[in-house]
Simulated scan of single mutants.
Amino acid sequence: MPHSNTVLNQVVRFFKRHEFETLARKHHVGQQFRSFSRWSQFTAMLVGQLTGRKSLRDLVDNLKVQGHKLYHLGTRDVPRSTLARVNEEQPHQLYKELFHKLLGRCQAIAPKNRFKLDAKLYLLDATVINLCLKVFPWASYQKAKGAIKLHVGLSADGYLPEFFDVTTGKEHEINWARLLKLPTGSFVVFDRGYTDYDWYQALMDSSIFFVARLKDNALVEYFKKRPGRRSQGVLTDQEISLNGIKGSLRLVHFVAEDGNEYRFVTNANHIPAALVAELYKERWQIELFFKWIKQNLKIKAFYGTSENAVLTQIWIALCVYLVLAWLKFMSKITITMQQMLRLLQLNLFERRDLESLFKPTKALPNPQLALL
Rank of each mutant, 00 (worst) to 15 (best):
N308V: 09
K215Y: 04
V276Y: 07
A273F: 01
N296E: 04
I299A: 01
Y194R: 09
S248H: 13
E287P: 15
A277L: 05
K281M: 14
N269C: 06
G193K: 07
G233R: 03
V189C: 14
L275W: 06
A274I: 01
K215F: 03
H253T: 14
A277R: 07
N296D: 04
Y262F: 08
Q313W: 03
F254N: 00
L279G: 05
G244F: 05
G193V: 10
Q238D: 04
K225D: 13
A212I: 00
F187M: 12
R226F: 02
F223H: 12
Y303G: 07
P227N: 00
W199F: 06
E261M: 10
K298W: 10
G185V: 02
D191L: 12
L251W: 11
V276K: 07
Y262D: 01
V255P: 01
F190D: 03
T312E: 01
A274Y: 03
K298N: 14
E278A: 15
P227H: 00
R250W: 11
K246C: 09
G247D: 13
W284K: 12
Q295V: 03
G193C: 12
N296P: 00
T312H: 08
I299W: 04
V276A: 02
W199M: 03
F209Y: 12
Y262G: 01
K294S: 05
S231I: 08
D196Q: 10
S186Y: 06
Y280P: 10
A268V: 00
L318C: 09
S231K: 10
